[in-house]
Amino acid sequence: MAKSNNTLQPNTWVEAHADYLFNYAIVRVSDEEIAKDLIQDTFIAGLKSAKNFKGQATERTWLIAILKRKIIDHYRKINSKKGKAEVRIQYNPNSDSDGNWLEEQVADPGSIVENDALENEELGLAIQMCIDQLPLNQRKVFTMKTVRGLSTEDICKELNINPSNLWVMIHRARTALMGCLNQNWFTL
């Protein structure tokens, strides 16, 4: 999270916001490569319009606003490609008969599947927000171990620490995360 009082610090953008923005984008475009491009576009657009930043929002909120525009632009672009503008009138794309009532196909509001998917998306962002608040070394170790699923041995080698250091760091990170999620998500 941005520690400064609402000023832009582009040289810390990647460390501070890339993971959050990436997860934000990925649930909306469902494609890692496209999400990565969108993040890059967002940062570039952010730099170009940095002088318009008035400090009324936090740096992150401001970047998310730009990312939202980029996501909308992305969908506009893929929809305007030739040949995709074809309109077919068919009530139900899954069946050949064209008489099915739309009402029969409306999603069941009590359906567990859809609600779960929505909740998990918000959950992911809530957790990422808490991870971003960890001290940098804990954040690094926790992400390598828990999100990327690397082996203890590999992490120790890469960061030049011993296993008991690693477990203490992981443990501190987990304790902090439990506290943070308790405040921001629900009772853990």
Partner: peptide, 24 residues
């Protein structure tokens, strides 16, 4: 169990490095 449900993903270090250089 929450971490398992949330399906968080991150960019690799090299991809982040490229992003940083683009910004710089």
């Amino acid at each position: 169990s929450l971490m398992g449900k949330a399906n968080i993903r991150v960019m690799s270090d090299s991809e982040k490095e490229v992003l940083k250089q683009t910004i710089e």
